[in-house]
Design a protein around this nucleic acid. Structure first.
Lengths: 145, 145
DNA sequence: CTTTCTGCAAAAGGTTTGCAGTTAG
DNA sequence: CTAACTGCAAACCTTTTGCAGAAAG
């Protein structure tokens, strides 16, 4: 519960209500660690004997993403809880293609390099999406049978 | 037609057949310049009086992507024809959020920096997805009314 | 000719919408 | 209390599958 406390405060401070569905979705996101789809979340809750309508889950995720409390990982089409604070550049991901393990990071230097490249093309970059897929150390180890 | 000639050669040299549907999809991709969905492609062909089943378009796009002749742009969920050759790092995109204009580029230095970051997390990065959304010079100009 | 490819029909999945009833504050 | 939120039903859009017929080489 303490893990989601910060997020609940953000909800409250922005004038959104702290409801049971929102708490449940946040709880699942903090527990799973890897990207999950709305239906994954419903399934996980189901196994705990809890229930949420899928539409509600969609709407909660949309809200969380709009507040930067969660992110959609485009590469795998799932959602993760944001593990970073504000500032220091765009949030980026490394995803293990085998087990789905994910790490979030930010790197201001990368953002600046990318902005420079965009400028060469006459673009003003606003938002960077950067994900790379690879293989994590655990899966690497278990692959060398 | 000359624009798609190279792509057709790749198809042929890899043992795939050069068919009418494949030529049509490639032609649309070279003409539109911005990311299009399978149904967008069907619609564009329809306006020319041509027809392709949507399933065929899905399959053609899947093939083209597997051969790196096209890419799926995750940010907008559409497909573009690849405008780069092989080598020099992963293919990356800048997309205008207003008009959909897109530029593809590759930057080996960025790839290496990202690989180093992945390594810190114990990951071996294999594929980089990097897209940034921004605003292109034309839209920027027309925005300053 | 034969293998690959396309079209069709249908199903399966994912996402969105409007509205009535519920609940947080 | 009342504005914000959730659940439900239904629609909608996207993607996939299996199979029979067409076409490339």
């Amino acid at each position: 519960m303490s893990q989601i406390h910060g997020a609940l405060q953000v909800l409250h401070s922005r004038g959104y209500r702290v409801t049971e569905p929102r708490k449940r979705v946040l709880k699942v996101l903090t527990e799973v660690q890897s990207p999950v789809s709305p239906y994954d979340i419903q399934e996980i809750l189901h196994r705990k004997g809890e229930y949420l309508n899928h539409v509600t889950i969609y709407r909660v995720l949309e809200l969380l993403c709009s507040l930067n409390l969660a992110h959609k990982v485009l590469l795998v089409g799932g959602f993760v809880k944001c593990t970073l604070g504000e500032g220091g550049g765009c949030h980026r991901f490394v995803v293990c293609r085998q087990c789905g393990a994910i790490r979030e990071y930010a790197d201001k230097a990368l953002c600046e390099e990318e902005n420079a490249i965009a400028q060469e093309f006459g673009f003003r970059a606003e938002q960077h999406f950067s994900e790379f897929s690879g293989i994590c150390s655990e899966c690497m180890a278990s692959a060398m049978f």
